[in-house]
């Protein structure tokens, strides 16, 4: 690894993960530190039982079906973005540990095919969703409401996705090489395997990782803090009895 790669795709990864974790804890602490108002802010109708309340909360948090009444495309792309994000996260886990049962079942070739198709679809879906969200913000009234933070985050995510898709579709680097890099990170000795180090793809990877790091660092301090806030805030909705 050259020093720039070492800094951006090595050291910065640790910094990002640390900031993300500490930042998340800090945000939760910051919320809990402020006294809550004892006024019950829930709206009706409400479930009568604890179980019912839990189900309602889960529905409000993960499905928010009421949005279908007012903005269907938005609901669709938001759901796709979040499911896609989750799928991408799960897909990346393969770089830590191969999904052995699946790989055995499909064979090396089959697994590669599967990964290309499923990962490819997810990458495209994510990109399209982000483009939708971004393009929406250039029209009124969304434009009047949007702040630079909104564009910044969407462009950042867009760039991460673009680089990721580039690696997927044009990278010509085998999964083993990426896995070797991830393992080097996990053992605190960041290093690119020869295959990666000598490929031009390296710079795409470094950009992908760098931007992801920035996103991770910014996440707890941005509006995207809803990744943790949504659970609490949707609970307030059913708080009235």
């Amino acid at each position: 690894m050259n020093w720039l790669s070492f800094l951006l795709a090595g050291v910065l990864v640790y910094v990002a993960v640390a900031v993300f974790l500490v930042g998340t804890v800090f945000r939760v602490y910051y919320w809990l530190k402020v006294p809550r108002s004892s006024i019950r802010l829930g709206i009706f109708p409400q479930a009568n039982s604890q179980r019912g309340r839990f189900l309602q909360w889960a529905r409000d948090t993960f499905l928010f079906l009421q949005v279908l009444d007012v903005d269907r495309p938005m609901w669709l792309f938001v759901i796709l973005l979040h499911i896609g994000g989750l799928a991408a996260f799960v897909g990346h886990l393969r770089l830590i540990q191969e999904f052995t049962p699946l790989a055995t079942a499909l064979g090396k070739e089959g697994m590669g095919q599967f990964s290309l198709i499923s990962g490819g679809i997810v990458g495209i879906v994510l990109l399209v969703s982000v483009i939708y969200l971004l393009s929406r913000r250039f029209k009124s009234p969304y434009r009047d409401l949007s702040t630079p933070e909104d564009y910044f985050l969407l462009i950042l995510i867009f760039m991460v996705l673009l680089m990721g898709n580039h690696l997927r579709f044009f990278g010509h680097v085998e999964v083993e090489a990426y896995r070797a890099y991830v393992h080097s990170l996990l053992t605190f000795s960041p290093e690119f395997p020869v295959e990666l180090a000598e490929s031009g793809t390296r710079w795409v990877l470094v950009t992908h990782v760098t931007l992801s790091n920035l996103l991770l660092i910014y996440l707890p301090f941005s509006k995207l803090v809803h990744y943790i806030g949504t659970y609490a805030v949707n609970l307030v909705r059913s708080e009235a009895r």
């Binding site: 945000r27 910051y30 919320w31 809990l32 402020v34 006294p35 809550r36 108002s37 802010l41 969304y142 409401l145 949007s146 702040t147 909104d150 509006k223 995207l224 803090v225 809803h226 806030g229 949504t230 609490a232 805030v233 307030v236």
Partner: peptide, 13 residues
């Protein structure tokens, strides 16, 4: 208050 803080923090516009 905590509820207000949530509301100020999580809105994605």
């Amino acid at each position: 208050n905590r509820q207000l803080l949530y509301y100020l923090d999580v809105c994605t516009r």
